[in-house]
Design a protein around this nucleic acid. Structure first.
Lengths: 145, 145
DNA sequence: TATTGTTATACTCTATAACTATA
DNA sequence: TATAGTTATAGAGTATAACAATA
């Protein structure tokens, strides 16, 4: 049986997509935490940058439904990384606030995730690192714009 | 209350990690399929490049356990994208083979995923696209090495 | 009456353990 | 007996629907 195999060069879009997806998967794998779930880590990262948010706002940002965020926040509270506070102006609202342990946890998680990549980057030439720095800036604009 | 806010420039590793993770998330979201699950699409992509594999081999490549792959393949078979064949030399083995519809489905899925990024790339300068091309090659080496 | 969050319940995707069929 | 795959069952993580509390 004759099988025709396509040998065309992948487009830039295709190459970049595959390379980015693979690197992202590797980075996720390297930084994985044992005790906190991915959804908990993502919510914690959001709270780290926003001081405090209501449960509903957090659910909207994380693109999950309120019942799901109730469970995620319950998990974070159980680990002592955030606290829930009733709003003083509207008793229906729950403000979710990251605490010092939560901040420390997030920072250590970030460092753990950075470590693998930082090590890999030392194997590159200065020129290659500069290329990656410029690429990161272009990526920022791609996603925002 | 006084809050000290860190304003240090992120390291290259940190910037790159965040940018890559965010772009990867966007690409996943853009290319999402309505009827096939992510695991099914991943398995189909593997089968597209390998002609045929046993169920166990496929499970190992996709990093899932055999019972999970049984379900994933059942879903693909139900959609008419692959077929299961008993090996002629060892009746215990199940060869999973992608068919023409499966090939077409995978190609269309790839194109859908590439489309958003390809469109974004046209907004860049030639120089910026060259930078991204070099970055993709560096990424390939980072993950392999 | 409308809105925020919680509880009850169900679905999807995964795993481990027990089972069937083939070597 | 050992191995490949399937079936049974259970555990995350998510959603929708029904509910309680507050506005």
């Amino acid at each position: 049986m004759l099988r025709i195999v396509k040998t065309t060069t992948p487009t830039l879009a295709s190459h970049l997509r595959v390379a980015v997806a693979r690197l992202a998967r590797q980075l996720r794998h390297q930084g994985a935490s044992e005790d906190a779930t991915p959804s908990q880590l993502a919510a914690l990262a959001t709270l780290y940058h926003r001081v405090h948010l209501t449960l509903g706002e957090l659910a909207a940002i994380e693109r999950v439904k309120p019942p799901t965020m109730t469970r995620i926040v319950a998990g974070l509270e159980e680990k002592g990384l955030v606290r829930r506070e009733h709003s003083s102006t509207d008793g229906r609202l729950i403000n979710v606030v990251i605490n010092d342990d939560g901040r420390t946890y997030h920072e250590q998680y970030q460092q753990r995730r950075d470590a693998w990549l930082a090590r890999k980057l030392t194997d590159l030439t200065k020129d290659e690192r500069e290329t990656l720095g410029r690429a990161a800036e272009i990526f920022d604009r791609l996603v925002e714009g």
